[in-house]
Amino acid sequence: MLGIVIDDSRAMRKILRGLLADLDYEVLEAGNGREALNVLESTGRVPDLALVDWNMPEMTGLEFVIEVRKISEMRQMTLMMVTTESEHGQIVRALAAGAHEYVIKPFTRDGIIDKLALLGLVPAGVS
C-alpha cells in the first residue's frame, strides 16, 4: 500500500511515516498541501491513504482536500485529517470537503491503527 504524510513538522512526519512503515506501507512525504499536490503529480501514483495536517504554510490541509477532490484520478485515495484543529465546525468542514476520517493530536498509535482498520487500510496479517 502507498501512503502520503502531509505535515509541516518534520518530527510529526517522521512519527507518522514510522507508523505507516510498520504497517508495510510505502510512504511519501510533503511539508504542505501544495508540495503534496506536486509530489502526487510528479510520481504519477495514487496513494491509498493520505494523512493530512490542517495548519500548514502555503496550502492548508483543508485546501489540499478541496483541491485533490477535484482530481478524478485521486478519488479512490482515503483522506484522514491528523490535526490539532478540534472545533466541531472545522471538523464538519473537513468531512464535507471530502475527508473520510479525522484524528485529533495528540493521537496514540493504536488510535490511528484502529481507524485505519475500520477503513480497511491495515494489510492482512499486519498490526
Binding site: S9, N55, T84, E85, E87, K105, P106
Partner: peptide, 8 residues
C-alpha cells in the same frame, strides 16, 4: 502547536 490546539 499540539498544546495550543487542544487549549483552543
Amino acid at each position: 502547536n499540539v498544546l495550543g490546539g487542544n487549549v483552543k
